[in-house]
Design a binder for these strands. Structure first.
Lengths: 169, 169
DNA sequence: ATTTGATTGACAGTATACTGACAATATGAC
DNA sequence: GTCATATTGTCAGTATACTGTCAATCAAAT
């Protein structure tokens, strides 16, 4: 027999995981921006800086794999970081297509200084839950993101994305 | 004594709730778009259609409160829905500033037809988890979004947002 | 060596998001 | 009735996201 049609109600929207993830993401960004206002860095820019810090001399394509951000989007992010003089872009001697990314002194400094604020924002996101529940949510969310990795447009390719990079960096 | 500085590693980024929420939101959108490709509707457009369906004659400001979307953003969303002839915008007889929103026949039809695909996408998002874990995650996420409501730029104001609407709609 | 195919960074186009501002309009105080 | 204030929709500006395309370049096959 045919299954009954889903009722069209706002409650169905409010209870949909997709809606909840969207809301939570917006809340997360709002808290991050609020805590880090003094540094004028967005969550994306912050993640890019961390990745360049831990992988000096990475190129844009590999950076996009390491933080799972869209390659096209990353272009403008990198441009903004360069304008703010937080990173340097140097042409690769081995591959004329590639531009290698490095933190400037200012970039390394802002990254060091922003950490406590970033921490505060991350704590605030889960603060309303009981400590035990925070752990459960975080564990399940980590699992879910990992298991859904291939469903995203830009799957995360953490360290293995760097296998083919030069050994000099 | 001073607390030790947070180490700057990618693992810290990968484990940060804000990063996980961003990833999961991107995955959720990708799955929604994939399942609903035939209807050419985004998650945001879908939510707006549902809200207009359940609140015919709502105006843009109240719509933004009911689905917790930014008022500025909603302007272009409404415009796109109008271009697709899924909604009508009629001036309010009571308030010359206000434009009231209604589903067209095509809008009501697409909403009815898209429901199974939306359902499928929502199921797929949590599919990788064990059934019991899905419930736990959804419950905690619902709680967290609710408790963080005031931290978002556009807090959700569900039904009470409609208290001051005309009784005619 | 030349051709084929893949990769890199860039760009154009669309769609959320948020900030801050604005004119038109409505509401309340007086 | 008038003035101060608030609200509505709109717009400009910035920042992700994703799609698709492109020239330059590289790598691999022959």
């Amino acid at each position: 027999m045919p299954s009954k049609p889903t009722p069209i109600t706002m409650d169905a929207v409010y209870a949909a995981p997709g809606y909840l993830f969207r809301r939570m993401q917006q809340i997360a960004v709002a808290l991050f921006v609020e805590e880090c206002r003094a540094f004028d860095l967005t969550p994306v820019q912050y993640a890019a800086l961390v990745a360049i810090h831990t992988h000096p001399g990475i190129d844009a394509t590999r950076l996009s794999a390491v933080i799972a951000f869209d390659r096209s989007t990353l272009g403008s992010v990198i441009e903004r970081l360069e304008t703010k003089k937080l990173i340097d872009r140097k042409p690769s001697p081995e591959d004329k297509r590639v531009k290698l990314l490095y933190l400037t002194r200012a970039g390394a400094a802002i990254l060091r200084d922003i950490m406590p604020s970033v921490e505060k924002a991350q704590v605030r996101m889960l603060q309303p839950l009981k400590p035990a529940d925070r752990k459960v949510l975080l564990a399940l969310l980590t699992q879910l993101v990992d298991l859904n990795n291939e469903s995203s447009r830009v799957p995360l390719r953490a360290e293995d994305a760097l296998e083919h990079m030069g050994r000099t960096g």
